[in-house]
């Protein structure tokens, strides 16, 4: 297996790793870099549990090769909280009981983070459209959508 040396920015820090040219970014994050917060639900880009931000864009890391991340900026769930402070989305998910088993939560929070960075005041429909690539089987999505809307208003500085 020929391995390539890849340099990236991972959760704000310069990070280098070796990965086989056929290894997905998901497997690289989980097996080489020990960041197991990004989950595999299907490995075919249909469930969104492996969502990371690649140059700021919500992306299924199971459909990206590790070598394609050369020179890119990667953000995973482990980078969402910042200096000991939870991100408003994380707080909103906890306060709204917007997770039950929690396996889809990392992927949804990362995808929602990308949404709120580009749509600070999304409608319910826009949130549902944006998150349709993130399957959840436990919650029926209701409290997840409420949590994202709450986080959006908190980030706009509105009192809950």
């Amino acid at each position: 297996m020929s391995k390539q040396h890849i340099t990236t920015t991972l959760n704000g820090e310069p990070t280098e790793f070796l990965c086989d040219t056929r290894q997905t970014l998901l497997d690289t994050l989980r097996n080489e870099l020990r960041l197991t917060g990004t989950k595999e639900g299907c490995a075919t880009g249909d469930c969104g549990a492996c969502t990371v931000l690649l140059d700021g864009k919500a992306t299924c890391s199971c459909l990206v090769l590790g070598v394609e991340a050369e020179g890119k900026d990667i953000q995973t769930i482990e980078g969402v909280a910042h200096e000991g402070e939870l991100h408003p989305l994380q707080t909103a998910f906890l306060n709204n009981a917007a997770l039950q088993c929690g396996v889809c939560t990392p992927g949804i929070i990362v995808a929602a983070k990308a949404l709120l960075e580009t749509h600070p005041n999304p409608t319910e429909k826009e949130v549902r459209y944006w998150l349709s690539g993130n399957l959840c089987r436990c919650t029926g999505y209701d409290k997840i959508i409420h949590a994202v809307m709450d986080a959006a208003s908190a980030m706009r500085g509105e009192q809950p």
Partner: peptide, 23 residues
């Protein structure tokens, strides 16, 4: 009441270990 669950922070930060996460 509906307080925040004790294991919540680990689940929203990706620290919680699911089946395939253990080594």
């Amino acid at each position: 009441s509906s307080p925040v669950r004790p294991d919540g922070v680990d689940k929203v930060t990706g620290r919680a270990n699911f089946g395939a996460d253990h080594s």
